[in-house]
Amino acid sequence: MSVSNLLQNWSAVRHTHPVGDAPHAEYKWAMAIDLDACTGCNACSVACYAENNLPAVGKDKFEHGQQMHWMRIERYWDEDGRDMPDQGAQFLPMMCQHCEAAPCETVCPVGATNHTADGLNSQVYNRCVGSRYCSANCPFKVRYFNWYSYPDQEISWPSPMEQQLNPDVTVRTKGVMEKCTFCVQRLTVAKHNARNEGRLVQDGEVQTACQQACPTSAISFGNLVDPASKVAKQWKAQQVELAVDKQAKDEGDDSHEVGEHHSTTKLRGYRIFEELRAYPSVMYLERVRESAV
């Protein structure tokens, strides 16, 4: 291992950074979540537990904020000072946003979290030393640390529950960071299958676990590079661009601080914390409310 090798590898690794200088060639996995369709039912979250070997941590650890749900449903109330939330609640599924310029990636001392060529923010469990700097620098706080060796906790997978564990997904040990992977194990299988047949993965060929479970099909997931994919069409229709920090919707709206947009466009698509320039790969579509009733 020479230093020149290091420097070469270095620039190669760090320059796959996809915003700007090296656009995605074949794949850029991305998501769109329609908050008007999302009912907050938690099916996605449970599906994620099943697919990704997430441990149930139990009441005590949950109380200490040590729960391990890669996909969490947030419930917000309108803040308009009314006694009753008579326009319902707002639900927001939140998981790793797979930012293109991910704040977590630059700070990891060992390079355990990296950008893959197909636009995922990957987490290498074997490499992680558990400094938790990535989580400290994550604006969305969607990284979950293994505070305990959950496989050894009596509550997580007592026999025979361990038989349910997905062999395609690592069971994480204590001391490593983890987070939503966009079900990378499914993507890998789909990519291999496609490559064996000499083609690219087609839209709809691979689904994330949350997307597959969602009873209202609020989540769409696919390849943003493929203009025929639903997700690419959605991003395009909403005029949300990956490598831009101010979307069409935000024109004329300089404030980053309002719940209800002042925007005059008829667009619903937005990314959270656009102003932080993390360039998330998840577009949310605003919830709609009827005022006639």
């Binding site: 917000y76 309002v258 209800e260 959270i272 919830r287 409310r289």
Partner: peptide, 8 residues
Amino acid sequence: KIAGRLAS
């Protein structure tokens, strides 16, 4: 601006 909403 986290969970956005819009009038119909």
